[in-house]
Amino acid sequence: MTMARRLRTKDLSAGYDSRVILKDISLEVPAGRITAIVGGNASGKSTLLRTLARILKPKGGSVLLDDNVIHDMPSNAVARIMGLLPQSPIAPEGITVADLVGRGRHPHHGLFSRWNAADDRAVTDALTATGIAGLAERDLDTLSGGQRQRAWIAMALAQQTDLLLLDEPTTFLDVAHQIDVLDLLVDMNLSRRTTVVMVLHDLNLAVRYADHLIAVAQGGIHCQGTPADVLTEATVKTVFGLDCRIVTDPVSGTSTMVPIGRHKSGSVGQEAQSRK
């Protein structure tokens, strides 16, 4: 069971080198819930996540974790509270699944401490939770894309943090594996009350799986709130520059977005085109 942590930003500006991408962002991540950050390409959603995760230094303002400025906290202390699965982590050649997942225990060790029973338990739990206990001795390069993503998530789980940040955890996965990974995150959220923050490309999956949505556009937060509040035709138009219809998803009962393009969109599409 995890502790409820308060992660928020105050007048945060973020970017790379001299380029400021996001300005004056104030947000609070709801504790114990699943938050999805959505937005168009190059909108700054990954920048926001990486700044929250203490990877990028803010250009202005601050990220606060339990009221402490996160960039003033020791890196090891942060890593015991908050984990991050980056967008494209590198798999060292020849590393086994158990070895990779074991790397997640790093923040719980000092310079001279040794691997112990608690580490073993954490790794085993992580492997079991992600359903890859049977693959523990396999080389990571011999796994399928979906299995490999589970292994990376297991590494973040073995870190045993109250907060877990994920940068597009479903990219490069086919649709079945995308659902699989998202279900897994919900399992964790329900069983451990882990606070999850993730950047998601697929707006409809974000709406279905998240409790809280943050839509990033034009260098700031366009809107945030429950998926039902955020997902409107107007929001999609501003955030993605896309015409759409919002309908009810017959499976989940949540809203879902149906895009309108120039082709293959019936009479609505022709209407949209003539308006341009």
Partner: peptide, 23 residues
């Protein structure tokens, strides 16, 4: 020798290493 563990984690990429508390 005292940097070896951190160095090993850098192999996972900078972001992953930093998320694990490596400076």
């Amino acid at each position: 020798a005292v940097s070896a563990r951190d160095l090993d984690l850098l192999r996972l990429g900078d972001d992953a290493a930093r998320a694990l508390g490596v400076r």
